[in-house]
Nucleic acid binder design. Structure first.
Length: 234
RNA sequence: AAUGAACCCUAUU
């Protein structure tokens, strides 16, 4: 079972989700919880909700009450399959929640266009004494971006500075996106220029923001700059 | 051997 699980998890890590699922159905030994967790990741990424639900059933047979990692993996699978109600139900069933649990439900709410609920969940998380990390903050910044919540977005920016939270390309891009969608183009540009590493998504967040707010020429200027730095448009 | 992050999807029409 360790060999099968190892193979499946390597496929999942390499993005070969279909291969992972076909290995799973070929297994000639009983899967264990580690196997099922990797399979759930593959189900989420491929939208295989029905298989995900079967795995949910199997997990209940293995352990009456789900462990944290299995619970989190199920929650993430429902989120990625866009089943927000089932995700919310899972969230309730995970009694001892960690930062991954909270991040999954918050990003699910953002994806299901419920940014207000996402921000509320973020506040709940803090009231339980959970310290936000850069991953959950990226999702919360997306919530702010999609509802134009500039004040909350600024608060998060300050929080990141105050707590010395490691800034990377993901959080930098989320910040550019938030400022740009909120119409705060000066701040978007400041953050963008301060980013040591920019990927194509960082440039895209900036260009979309400029374009949406009537600065099409400026967006084109940045597009030229991007191409000149050697990044290929997708 | 195991769980959460950008963009797109969700802009425009």
């Amino acid at each position: 079972v360790v060999s099968w699980t190892g193979l499946i998890s390597v496929c999942v890590k390499g993005g070969l989700f279909g291969e992972a699922l076909s290995l799973f159905v070929q297994m000639d030994v009983a899967p264990n919880i580690a196997t099922l967790v990797s399979v759930l990741v593959a189900c989420g990424r491929t939208g295989e909700l029905n298989l995900g639900r079967s795995v949910h059933g199997l997990l209940h047979k293995y352990e009456g009450s789900l462990g944290l990692i299995a619970g989190n993996a199920l929650l993430d699978m429902y989120v990625k399959c866009e089943r927000i109600n089932e995700a919310k139900q899972m969230f309730k069933e995970i009694f001892v929640k960690d930062i991954v649990t909270w991040t999954s439900i918050i990003s699910g709410l953002v994806q299901c266009k419920k940014p207000k609920e996402a921000l509320e969940a973020f506040h709940d998380m803090q009231s339980y004494g959970m310290d936000p990390d850069k991953v959950v903050l990226s999702s919360v910044l997306s919530a702010c971006a999609s509802m134009g919540a500039l004040d909350s977005g600024k608060w998060i920016h300050q929080y990141i500075k105050r707590k010395n939270i490691e800034q990377d390309v993901h959080i930098g891009t989320a910040m550019v996106d938030m400022y740009a969608k909120c119409g705060c183009l000066d701040m978007a540009l400041d953050v963008f220029h301060d980013m040591p590493y920019k990927n194509i998504q960082s440039w895209n967040a900036l260009m979309c923001g400029l374009a949406i707010h009537g600065h099409g020429r400026s967006a084109l200027g940045y597009f030229n700059l991007m191409v000149r730095t050697g990044l290929k448009p997708n």
